[in-house]
Every structure is written in C-alpha cells, then in structure tokens.
C-alpha cells in the first residue's frame, strides 16, 4: 500500500467501495476509511470487531471495559487509519495487538484491577459463554492450543499468565515464585518455539 493512498481526502467521500465492500481486502478498506467512508469502517468492524471485543473481554474480564476498549480502538482507526501499516502484518493482527496493549493498560490501573478481581469468580463460571466462543476462528484456536501444548509447562504458564491475565513478567515471576530473569527468558523462548510450530502450521494451511 502506498503511503499517499492513505492520505485523507474528504473530497472523495464517494461510494466507490460501497457495492462490494464485503469482497474487498482489509488494506483497501483502511484506504476507504482514510477517505471517510464510514461503511468501510462498519465492514472492518463486522470482520474484526468481535475478535477485538473477545480479546478485550478475555484480558479485562469486564464487559463494560471490553466494550470501551473496542470502541476506542475503532474510533482510533477512524481518526488515524494511517497508523496501520499493511506491510507489517494483517489488519486483524494490528487491531488485536492494539487491543491487547490497551486492555492491559486499562487493567493495570488500580480501579480496574479491583473491578476485575470482583469479576474473577463470575469469569470462571461463565466460560461456557457459548455464543461468544462459537464465533471464534477455529483454525487459529486449535493451532494455538496445539502450539501451547508443545511448550514446556513453565514456558506455557508464563505466557498464559502474561498474555491472558495481563501480568507483567515481574508479576508472573512473583506469582510463580521464579526469578524475573528466568520468566523473561521463558516467555521469549516459548514464543519463539510457538512461532516455529505455527509457521509450520501456516505452511501446511497454505
């Protein structure tokens, strides 16, 4: 995608992408968003809004916080579409990484942490939240499950606590009663190992 193509041009508030929005690529939709095409943003939300919300909810364990994070993400994409660089990965990866970062920032604030702890028991009992999960991308989920299973237990635990519980590596170290340096290394080596497994999986899928 060329840098110029993403520049805002309100003159082009056209319907040129409207007829076949569901068929055009994510990158093209972002270009359309840069031209203030709100339908393009709606299509991006349709494609990725659920995944963004699911991740935000998984990390924050709070419906209201998750909705706030999701709303913020899409408003930011509307205001700053040029921040997405198609050369560095898919739009979904970009949005999910932004979501994760925002979610952990939110839960690390003291007030949110309290709310989250109050929600802990509810979160555990509502994991059979069918309708949410059944929309999930099965292929990715299964691949991740398998890739996680191949990791040594300590690496898996460190990654899960950091990623899904939003803990810093220092907090993970405290929780697991392990040295910080060890946890840091385990997270990195575990991710690299998953990278290899998932690359093989992607090659097979392709």
């Amino acid at each position: 995608m060329q840098a110029e193509s993403i520049q805002r041009n309100p003159q082009h508030r056209s319907k040129d992408t409207e007829p076949q929005l569901h068929e055009i690529s994510d990158a093209a939709l972002v270009v359309a968003v840069a031209r203030y095409n709100q339908d393009a943003l709606a299509e991006i939300f349709r494609r990725h809004g659920g995944a963004v919300h699911t991740l935000a909810k998984r990390v924050t364990r709070d419906q209201a916080l998750a909705e706030e994070v999701t709303q913020e993400l899409f408003v930011r994409l509307w205001n700053e579409p040029e921040r997405y660089d198609a050369g560095r990965g898919t739009l979904r990866t970009y949005l999910l990484m932004q979501t994760h970062r925002r979610s952990v920032d939110v839960i690390r604030s003291e007030e949110a942490r309290k709310r989250r702890e109050q929600n802990d028991s509810a979160a555990v009992t509502s994991t059979s939240y069918d309708i949410d999960h059944e929309f999930g991308d099965l292929a990715d989920r299964e691949a991740v499950r398998e890739a996680l299973q191949t990791l040594p237990r300590d690496e898996r635990k460190a990654i899960e606590l950091a990623f899904f519980d939003g803990l810093t590596y220092r907090e993970v170290a405290q929780r697991l009663e392990q040295p910080e340096g060890t946890v840091k290394t385990r997270i990195r080596s575990g991710l690299k190992r998953m990278n290899v497994t998932l690359s093989q999986w992607r090659a097979v899928e392709a």
Binding site: H53, T70, Q71, T93, M97, H133, F135, D140, I159, L191
Partner: peptide, 20 residues
C-alpha cells in the same frame, strides 16, 4: 513474533449488539 502473537490473540467472537 508479531503474527504469532496475532494468532494467539485471535479467538474470534461476536461483537456485542449495539456497540457499532
């Protein structure tokens, strides 16, 4: 590592009604 983290993060799921 970015795409790997993208896959870990991707659980899909529906957006709540009314959020859009």
């Amino acid at each position: 590592l970015r795409s790997t983290v993208g896959i870990i993060a991707n659980e899909g799921g529906p957006a709540p009604a009314g959020l859009w």
